[in-house]
C-alpha cells in the first residue's frame, strides 16, 4: 500500500541498506521511467499550461508565457469551492473514520474466533466495488430524490418541511463522499487491528487500566498506522472528487468543490490555464496538509 510508507516511518529503524548494486538500479529502471513519463512530464506540462496567456489573435488558443497572475485570479474567483472541498473532505474523512473504525474492530477483533465469518464480513466490505461507483451514487440520488422514500418518510414525520430537498445539499454530498470512501478507511484499519496482539490488551487490564483506558492508551495507538493510511486514502481523493458534488449526482452549484471547477474549466469553459493552476493549487494544498499531518502524528508517537 502506497501510504504504508508514512505509517511505518516511526517504527524501528531499518537495518542499514545494502551496498548499491547495478542489478538493483536495473530493476528500478522501469519504475523510474514510468514515473518520469507519466508523472514528471505531465506535471511539467501542467505547470507550463498554468502560466499561459490567451493568444491575442486566435480566440480560444493559448500561448506560452509567464502569467503568474493566473494563480491570483483563480484563487480570487474559486476560493469558496477550494475551502468547501477541504471542508467536505475533512467531514467525510471524520464520518468514514467513525463508521469504519468500529466496523474494522468488529471484523478484526470480535470475529477473530470465527475465521469464516471474518472472511465473509470482509467480502461484504469490498462488495460495493463490484458495482460501478457511478451507478451506486446515482442510486443514492434516486433514494434521496424529492419523490423518493427517504424524503417522503421524513416529511411524513414532519422532520423535514414539505418543500425541502436532500439532493443538492451539503448533506447529500458529504454523505456520498463518506459512503464511497468507507471501504478505503475500513480496510487499512482492519489490517492494523487484525494483527493486534490481544496480550497487550490483557496487559493493560492487568496494570489497572479500565477497558476504556486500555482502548485509548493501547488499542488505539497500536491501530494508528491503519488509521493514518485510512484517513490519507480517504481525504486525498475526497478533496479532489468531482462526482459526488456535481449536479448530475448528489450536488448542485451551491455545493461545487474544487474538482468540479477544474472539470468545468478544462472541459466546458476550456480555460486551460485556470484549470491547470487550480490543479496545482489542489496538489500543493494536499501536500502541505498531509505532510503536516504525517509529521505531527509521526513525531508524537502516533497519538
Amino acid at each position: 500500500m502506497a501510504f504504508g510508507a508514512f505509517a511505518t516511518s516511526t517504527a524501528v529503524a531499518e537495518p542499514a541498506a545494502r551496498r548499491k548494486s547495478p542489478i538493483a538500479l536495473l530493476l528500478l529502471l522501469p519504475g523510474l521511467l514510468y514515473l518520469g513519463l507519466f508523472f514528471l512530464v505531465p506535471l511539467f506540462s501542467l505547470v507550463i499550461t498554468s502560466l499561459q496567456q490567451p493568444d491575442p489573435v486566435v480566440f480560444g488558443q493559448f500561448e506560452n508565457a509567464f502569467r503568474w497572475e493566473n494563480y491570483v485570479t483563480v484563487l480570487q474567483q474559486y476560493w469558496p469551492q477550494t475551502v468547501r472541498a477541504f471542508g467536505y473532505a475533512a467531514l467525510a474523512t471524520l464520518f468514514a473514520l467513525l463508521i469504519g473504525f468500529p466496523l474494522a474492530y468488529f471484523i478484526g477483533i470480535t470475529l477473530r474466533r470465527w475465521p469464516l465469518l471474518q472472511a465473509l464480513a470482509l467480502v461484504l466490505v469490498i462488495a460495493p466495488f463490484f458495482i460501478s461507483f457511478l451507478l451506486r451514487t446515482i442510486a443514492w440520488k434516486q433514494l434521496f430524490s424529492d419523490e423518493g422514500p427517504i424524503v417522503g418518510f421524513l416529511q411524513a414525520l414532519a422532520i423535514l418541511p414539505g418543500d425541502a430537498a436532500i439532493t443538492g445539499s451539503a448533506f447529500a454530498v458529504v454523505f456520498g463522499l463518506t459512503y464511497n470512501f468507507i471501504p478505503f478507511m475500513t480496510l487499512p484499519i482492519y489490517t492494523s487491528l487484525e494483527r493486534l496482539d490481544l496480550r497487550y490488551v490483557e496487559a493493560g487490564g492487568d496494570l489497572y487500566a479500565s477497558p476504556r483506558s486500555t482502548f485509548f492508551r493501547v488499542t488505539l495507538p497500536l491501530a494508528a498506522p491503519g488509521i493514518m493510511s485510512g484517513t490519507l486514502l480517504t481525504f486525498i481523493p475526497a478533496a479532489g472528487d468531482y462526482v459526488n458534488a456535481s449536479r448530475e449526482f448528489l450536488g448542485s452549484t451551491d455545493t461545487a468543490m474544487i474538482g468540479n471547477v477544474i472539470e468545468a474549466n478544462f472541459l466546458v469553459l476550456q480555460n486551460f490555464p485556470a484549470a491547470a493552476a487550480l490543479s496545482l493549487v489542489l496538489m500543493a494544498a494536499i501536500l502541505i496538509l498531509v505532510s503536516a499531518y504525517v509529521k505531527r502524528s509521526g513525531t508524537e508517537d502516533l497519538l
Binding site: 496480550r199 490483557e202 496487559a203 492487568d206 496494570l207 487500566a209 477497558p211 497500536l222
Partner: peptide, 21 residues
C-alpha cells in the same frame, strides 16, 4: 471483579511490553 480491579500483577510469558511506549 475484572482484571483491572484486582490487586494482582502478572509477568507475562511473552512479556507483553507495550511496543509504542
Amino acid at each position: 471483579t475484572k482484571a483491572f480491579q484486582r490487586p494482582v500483577n502478572t509477568v507475562f510469558q511473552s512479556y507483553a511490553l507495550f511496543p509504542h511506549m
